[in-house]
Design a protein around this nucleic acid. Structure first.
Lengths: 201, 201
DNA sequence: GGTTGCGGCTGACGAATGTCACGGTTGTCG
DNA sequence: CGACAACCGTGACATTCGTCAGCCGCAACC
């Protein structure tokens, strides 16, 4: 019995390479591919595959959002996330979204096929060293601090951030200040870098 | 007659997928793979391949640096750059380094094989729409402005930037100001984003 | 030789950012 | 209930950042 797979990845060349590779496995059947989150979701609904293999960072909606949507609708497809960086925040959100597997693009290629099979067999598979890292790095920021930092990271000045969030400018400064302190950095730029690297934005 | 290829790419899974794919072509022979710039350079020197296919962004030295080193030593290997983003600054540097081919990971997978063959045949191949973009987007910044912006992008405050470059703090502020004006943005954060996206840092 | 333009460099000054002390609301626990 | 802790929100104040006017050296050009 073959395992049907939908594959989503925004870089066409990588998508093509992964697809070609999975097709070499006799027990796997790549029934569709997609280059963004919306198309991935549509492809899953249309083809009802056993497994969805998806990148996190894609144009439009992310792979994590697709996983959350499938879980909400009670869809049977099991989701494997394949991503570039070991961002522990992503892993946490992935777990909350009921993702079944989490693999790094740094890993050897054989892992991908193996994880697809194990996930289809009912296991939940996470890169072990990544699972460790997720524990001791919980996001210390509050929702408001995250909102403000997200906008600050795009280069918006405080005044504009305040306008968008309907806050006083002093309030925006204060949230940024607490975020900077909590993260142990010197200014908004370093705060944004650190938070992004950890997957907290 | 087969074309011998060395393949360099830091993400193990992508490297494996590309390698597997190139090996499917009867006229291509992948003689070695590498996961960073140093290993790529060593592999080329050891195996003397016809073509080196390499990513730009890798730990240690970049693919562009490898290309420049090979050119300097007068090595016969022809270089194909495969990269994620259409950063026109990279393309410019690639051309200066004597790179023979430049492909985007967004492109379909068939292009990679095609470009390797065409490059081996003596052609110089660049994604056409990318070549257009490179023309009208020359870096308007001076060397000093670039130095300062690079450090500012890492979140260093002006005082520390000044110390590292042996400048007065006012001078640093001024370079950043001119850079911000030239790029047509509002502050250092937006300037850093824009310059990075264009490959100017 | 004059002058025109560009890049490196600087200090002064207004504008934005970061810090601090504080009040209001909500939820939890003894 | 009262005490406590956590988060949201604000204005005042010091620090940092961004802009401006200007000086120097150098190369291009008539």
């Amino acid at each position: 019995m073959t395992i049907s797979v939908v594959l989503a990845e925004d870089q066409g060349m990588v998508l093509g390479a992964f697809a070609a590779l999975l097709r070499l496995e006799p027990d796997l059947d790549v029934v569709a591919t997609a280059t963004d989150g919306h198309k991935a979701l549509a492809a899953v609904l249309e083809h009802d595959p056993d497994v969805l293999v998806t990148d996190v960072e894609m144009p439009g909606i992310s792979g994590l959002d697709v996983a959350a949507a499938l879980r909400r609708d009670g869809h049977r497809a099991r989701v494997v996330i394949v991503t570039t960086f070991a961002r522990s925040g992503y892993l946490r959100r992935a777990m909350d979204s009921g993702v079944a597997g989490y693999v790094l693009k740094d890993a050897p290629i054989d892992q991908l096929v193996g994880v697809v099979r194990r996930v289809h067999a009912g296991e939940r598979v996470v890169d072990p060293q990544l699972a460790m890292a997720a524990w001791d790095s919980a996001d210390p920021m509050t929702d408001r601090e995250r909102d403000v930092l997200r906008l600050a990271a795009d280069g918006l000045p405080n005044g504009e951030i305040a306008a968008r969030l309907h806050l006083a400018e002093g309030t925006v400064r204060n949230y940024l200040s607490t975020a900077i302190t909590k993260l142990g950095v010197r200014n908004r730029i370093e705060a944004a870098r650190l938070a992004r690297d950890r997957g907290w934005l």
